[in-house]
């Protein structure tokens, strides 16, 4: 993280973090609602285990508590930029496949896409606060894999939403770490300790 923070920067970061935590919480509950609707409308099995989906940023992370603040922000930002592309692809796909038949699902998808975009912008602000600046956007994120059958696309969508729901939880945790007074030191719990 940045050199010793000025009080105003600390206050600004804490404000951004707490707003980010609320945004992540709202995003997560909306994604979970969307997941329920998506599973039901796509006729999928809610308990189905979906293998890791290529091109979808995995929220799973090892040694999470040892990450630096910058690492957290950069990983979050990269993920949400990718989700922005993935959700846009899903929205386009949904219109093509269902047309007006399921406008509700389309609206819910669009609403989550909006929140993901807002959250990405929020992360960029946090990175700017570090006078480090957000990395430039690479190309438009992962292309939709060439030939996927409809069922694979349905599963892919399920995988995207499930990962996004987990990312929303991880982001809230990351932002809480960032908001901690003892920022920078991975003062968070180390996994070496056993109960």
């Amino acid at each position: 993280m940045a050199a010793a923070d000025s009080p105003s920067a600390t206050l600004r970061r804490r404000d951004l973090c707490s707003r980010g935590i609320r945004l992540a919480g709202k995003m997560r509950s909306d994604v979970i609602d969307l997941l329920d609707t998506y599973v039901e409308r796509q006729g999928l099995d809610a308990s189905a285990s979906v293998a890791v989906v290529e091109g979808v940023p995995a929220a799973a992370v090892e040694h999470w508590d040892e990450q630096s603040g910058t690492q957290r922000l950069l990983e979050n930002l990269a993920a949400y930029r990718t989700f922005r592309t993935l959700l846009a692809q899903m929205l386009e796909e949904q219109r093509e496949q269902l047309g007006e038949a399921d406008a509700g699902l389309g609206r819910a998808l669009a609403a989550v896409l909006l929140q993901v975009s807002a959250f990405a912008y929020h992360l960029e602000e946090l990175l700017r606060l570090e006078s480090r600046g957000a990395p430039s956007e690479e190309e438009a994120g992962p292309p939709q894999p060439l030939h996927l059958g409809l069922f694979e696309r349905k599963l892919r969508g399920l995988g995207v939403l499930r990962e996004l729901a987990q990312w929303a939880v991880r982001s809230a945790r990351d932002l809480r770490q960032l908001a901690k007074p003892s920022l920078g030191s991975s003062s968070a719990l180390s996994t070496a300790e056993s109960p």
């Binding site: 285990s49 979906v50 999470w64 987990q166 991880r170 996994t191 056993s194």
Partner: peptide, 13 residues
Amino acid sequence: CHIRYLQLFSTVK
């Protein structure tokens, strides 16, 4: 018995 999380925030069951 108890298990230590090696990974957090995983969607894998």
